[in-house]
Design a protein around this nucleic acid. Structure first.
Length: 508
DNA sequence: CCCGGAATAA
DNA sequence: TTATTCCGGG
């Protein structure tokens, strides 16, 4: 078919790619490319959404490979190679294979997304397109993160990030790809997976028009970038500003995207001090939904987990979400600009795989408490790496997310408009944590979390246990917390769901 | 077809 | 780092 290269039709906003100061901007990443194709009808014969959320099938592998080869200037590209590249995404949790279906993969939007369009939620209304839910960037929805500057509207090619704030943030945010390619890319975003069929959007949540297809009003860069002046929280429920583009339906933030909330959150928060920018900020917006929503989401997610063995972590938080917690702004304690954020790496730097295999024997559970908090013994190395990295590109929900929760401000001033974010707040945020008492030292929390994750993964993986599940279980950690009564469980269902997943983790 | 290890390029 | 290339194995 046509070569993508030739088609400038859509382009992701530049910022969608990760500009990162990398030299020469990086090449487009495969998953971006896939998404591009998915959203273009021209390619529906070669690749299309199908099945559940985020699931797509490559109808014509050779063609897809060819197109990819064209894009990358790798004439020798073929499906075998392309698929290898896709496989690398498994560990990164960007993609998963839908077992039993040829050429079928599934995006794990939970992680992906939001970098670009943090809050969009796919509403997938039962809409017309049954397809898996293509993510929809509703035009208006996305917010731009970084720019604090008024002139946010950047030129497309410019990176948004203001040098300053962004720097770190930016790095994390996106990494990516770039459009070096001549072809345009489509502006699309990834979406997170959320409920598929059900789209119960409650009142306030209008939805997002989701979708692919032509319908999208594609915004030109202008549109995309346009800044919406104070989105702020209109209502408690709808955190997000309203439609940017004047989206017909009024894009409000979908209430549900569970994934969203967490995801970028703090990442963004860090850099985006101004309330306006911070999507989640409003808070807890997501939290506002009722348990039912969560329940559904969980179910869906659970399913996904089971089916695809996605990382459950993604929703650890949810259960606790119940509480509306608005203020995210405070929580930024992570990255105080200067301070070393604790970005903890839960794991010690993994040895090279090679080395590990050779040198490392499982027995090494030595606790090396060198200065660094090492919590994890020997996890799956990949996982670890990924996490960090993922966050970058994809906003990862998992790791940091928890933090968020941890930090989320307990005091929930629902009504109160969130105070402008002050730089100094970080400390407060921390304190806040204390105040609520939930407060377990961060390290411990992480540790716990880590353990849980491990377990979860191990279990989850266990099913499939692909070849390498090596020794994971060795972690000493996490004695189940005795006293910890789950703080808030939304509902029984949720609880159940979580349990099933064996995710009971939660803090306090 | 699908899976990943390994080596390597950019 | 992210692919690309090659490849043995299921």
């Amino acid at each position: 078919m046509k070569t993508p290269a030739a088609e400038p039709g859509f382009a992701f906003p530049d910022w969608a790619y990760k500009p990162e100061s990398s030299p020469g901007s990086r090449q487009i990443q495969l998953w971006h490319f896939i998404l591009e194709l998915l959203r273009k009808e021209e390619y529906h014969d070669v690749i299309a959404w199908q099945g559940d959320y985020g699931e797509f099938v490559i109808k014509d592998p050779d063609e897809v490979a060819r197109l990819w080869g064209v894009r990358k200037c790798k004439p020798q590209m073929n499906y075998d190679k392309l698929s290898r590249a896709l496989r690398y995404y498994y560990n990164k949790r960007i993609l998963h294979k839908t077992k039993g279906k040829r050429f079928t993969y599934k995006f794990n939007f939970n992680k992906l997304v939001l970098v670009n369009y943090p809050f969009i939620d796919m509403g997938m209304t039962g809409g017309p397109v049954p397809q898996s839910a293509p993510p929809i960037p509703s035009g208006g929805t996305h917010f731009r993160f970084p720019p604090c500057t008024p002139s946010d509207v950047l030129s497309p090619s410019e990176e948004l990030r203001s040098p300053t704030l962004f720097s770190s943030v930016a790095r994390r945010l996106a990494r990516g790809s770039v459009s070096d390619c001549s072809d345009g890319t489509s502006a699309n975003s990834e979406v997170e997976e959320s409920l598929s069929e059900e789209q119960h959007r409650r009142g306030p949540g209008p939805d997002i028009p989701a979708f692919r297809g032509p319908p999208l009003p594609r915004l030109s860069h202008e549109g995309i970038f346009r800044v919406y002046p104070r989105p702020r929280v209109p209502e408690p429920l709808s955190p997000f500003p309203v439609s940017p583009m004047g989206a017909p339906t009024g894009l409000l933030p979908p209430q549900l995207s569970p994934a969203l909330p967490m995801t970028p959150t703090h990442t963004h928060m860090n850099y985006t001090p101004s309330p306006t920018l911070s999507p989640m900020y409003p808070g807890g917006s997501h939290f506002s939904f009722n348990p039912e929503d969560m329940k559904r989401y969980l179910q869906a997610h659970t399913q996904s987990v089971y089916n695809y063995h996605l990382s459950p972590r993604a929703f650890l938080h949810y259960p606790s979400i119940v509480v509306p917690q608005p203020q995210r702004p405070e929580k930024p304690l992570h990255l105080p600009p200067d301070e070393p954020p604790f970005k903890f790496k839960l794991q010690p730097p993994p040895l090279g795989k090679k080395q590990r295999d050779r040198l490392l024997e499982p027995s090494s559970s030595t606790s090396s408490s060198s200065g660094v908090p090492q919590i994890k013994v020997e996890p799956i190395s990949d996982a670890e790496e990924d996490e960090e990295e993922l966050m970058v590109e994809v906003t990862d929900i998992s790791e940091e997310e928890e933090d968020e929760e941890v930090f989320k401000a307990p005091t929930a001033p629902e009504q109160k408009a969130p105070p402008p974010i002050l730089p100094g707040k970080e400390e407060e945020a921390v304190n806040a944590g204390n105040e609520s008492g939930r407060c377990i030292p961060l390290k411990l929390r992480f540790k716990r979390r880590w353990s849980e994750d491990q377990r979860l993964e191990a279990e989850g993986v266990a099913e499939e246990s692909d070849k390498k599940v090596r020794s994971n279980q060795e972690e000493p950690k996490l004695p189940p917390q005795p006293g910890g009564t789950p703080c808030r469980r939304v509902s029984t269902d949720l609880q159940r769901a979580t349990e099933e997943l064996s995710l009971e983790s939660r803090d306090c």
